[in-house]
Amino acid sequence: MPMPVEELRAHLTEAFPDAEIVIDDLAGDGDHYRARIVSAAFAGLPRVRQHQLVYAALKGKMGGELHALALETSTPPAGD
């Protein structure tokens, strides 16, 4: 069963409460998303570790309810 965008957003917001999150449903099927997440939680971390934090926030649903997730992670610009 696909994951509704609201559920995906809830998981990400819970894990990254300070984040600016933009989610696009790439195929219109609730199974293929792109998420852009800007959070101070990613500061100083390599991209691989940033993505691992996102996958951990999904609590094992990646590969099950959520088939594909393209990630763009970054930190807020300095001064924000």
Rank of each mutant, 00 (worst) to 15 (best):
A15K: 04
A15G: 14
F16D: 00
F16S: 00
D18P: 01
D18Q: 05
D18T: 14
A19V: 06
A19M: 10
A19H: 11
E20P: 08
I21K: 11
I21Y: 04
I21R: 02
V22E: 14
V22W: 15
I23F: 02
I23W: 10
I23Q: 01
I23K: 08
D24K: 13
D24N: 08
D24Y: 09
D24E: 15
D24V: 15
D25A: 07
D25I: 06
D25H: 02
L26Y: 08
L26V: 03
L26W: 12
A27P: 03
A27R: 14
G28L: 08
G28T: 09
D29P: 03
G30M: 12
D31R: 15
D31M: 14
D31W: 07
H32F: 01
H32K: 02
H32L: 05
R34G: 07
R34T: 07
R34S: 09
R34P: 14
A35D: 08
A35I: 01
A35P: 00
A35R: 06
A35Y: 11
I37A: 01
I37N: 08
I37S: 00
V38I: 04
V38C: 05
V38W: 12
V38A: 11
V38P: 04
V38L: 07
S39A: 10
S39T: 11
S39R: 04
A40G: 15
A40M: 09
A40Y: 10
A40K: 14
A41F: 03
A41P: 13
A41E: 08
F42V: 04
A43H: 10
A43V: 03
G44V: 09
G44Y: 04
L45V: 10
L45M: 11
P46E: 07
P46A: 13
P46D: 12
R47M: 12
R47V: 13
V48P: 06
V48R: 09
V48D: 05
R49Y: 06
Q50R: 09
H51C: 06
Q52I: 07
L53N: 08
V54Y: 09
